[in-house]
C-alpha cells in the first residue's frame, strides 16, 4: 500500500461521507443523480465479488463493505425514504444510463484479462466506473445552482481516481511486471471526464462564487 493509494481510498471514502452528510443533514437529495448512484452500486457489487472468497486484509475487506453498503443505502434513501425521495429531481435526471451499462458490458466481453466470470465482471466494473459520473455531471449542468456539499462530493469523487493513477505509476516503477492497462485507460478517461468540472470548481473557489457549470 503506497501513500497515493491510501490518499485515493481516503478521498473516495470522504466523498461518500460528504454525500451521506448532505442527504442526512439536509434530508434532501436535490442535485444528486440517482442514476449515478445506481451505477456506483453496480460497480461495487460487480467489482467486489471476491469479498467472501479472497481475504487480502482487514482494511481491504472493511473498505469494500463500506463502499457496497453506503452505495446501496444511498440508492435506497433516494428511492424509498419518505422525505428524501420527494426531493429527487426525477425529471432532470434523464440520462439513459442503461446505455452506459450495455456499453461497459460489451467492452468487458471484448477486453478483459481472462475470460472468467470474475475477470469479466471486474473489467465491467472498471469500465462502468469510468462513465458512471456522466448522469451526475449532466444533472449538475441542468440544475442552476449547485449546493456546496454536492460540489464537494463530485470534486472528491474525481480526485480519488487521480490519486489511483499516481498509485499505478508508483507501482509500475517499484514492482516488476505490474501492468494494468485496463484500469490505466479507464482511469484516465474517468479523471478526464472531470476535467471541465475541476476547472469550473476551481473558478468558483477562486472567485468565491457559487459553482455553476455552463449548460
Amino acid at each position: 500500500m503506497n501513500v497515493f493509494r491510501f490518499a485515493g481510498d481516503m478521498t473516495h471514502l470522504f466523498s461518500v461521507l460528504v454525500l451521506l452528510l448532505k442527504i442526512y443533514a439536509t434530508k434532501s437529495c436535490s442535485g444528486i443523480s440517482l442514476k449515478t448512484q445506481e451505477l456506483y452500486a453496480l460497480v461495487f457489487l460487480t467489482r467486489y465479488l471476491d469479498l467472501l472468497t479472497d481475504f487480502i486484509s482487514l482494511y481491504n475487506t472493511v473498505m469494500k463493505l463500506v463502499f457496497i453498503s453506503s452505495s446501496l443505502a444511498i440508492v435506497w434513501c433516494m428511492r424509498a425514504h419518505p422525505v428524501v425521495r420527494r426531493t429527487y429531481d426525477k425529471d432532470q435526471d434523464t440520462f439513459r444510463h442503461y446505455t452506459l451499462v450495455a456499453g461497459s458490458l460489451v467492452l468487458a466481453l471484448l477486453f478483459h484479462d481472462r475470460f472468467t466470470i470474475r475477470e469479466v465482471c471486474w473489467a465491467f466494473s472498471i469500465y462502468l466506473e469510468a462513465v458512471a459520473i456522466l448522469p451526475q455531471l449532466v444533472l449538475l449542468q441542468r440544475s442552476r445552482n449547485v449546493d456546496n456539499l454536492t460540489g464537494q462530493y463530485v470534486f472528491f469523487l474525481g480526485a480519488y481516481r487521480a490519486f489511483y493513477i499516481l498509485n499505478w505509476i508508483y507501482r509500475y516503477f517499484t514492482e516488476q511486471h505490474f501492468s494494468r492497462w485496463i484500469p490505466w485507460i479507464a482511469g484516465l478517461v474517468q479523471t478526464g471526464l472531470y476535467a471541465d468540472f475541476f476547472y469550473y470548481y476551481y473558478l468558483s473557489w477562486k472567485n468565491n462564487v457559487k459553482l455553476q457549470l455552463p449548460a
Binding site: 493509494r5 479472497d54 487480502i56 511486471h177
Partner: peptide, 10 residues
C-alpha cells in the same frame, strides 16, 4: 501474477 495480488486494490 496470482489473481489475489492482482485485485488488491479497491
Amino acid at each position: 501474477l496470482s489473481a489475489v495480488t492482482k485485485h488488491d486494490e479497491l
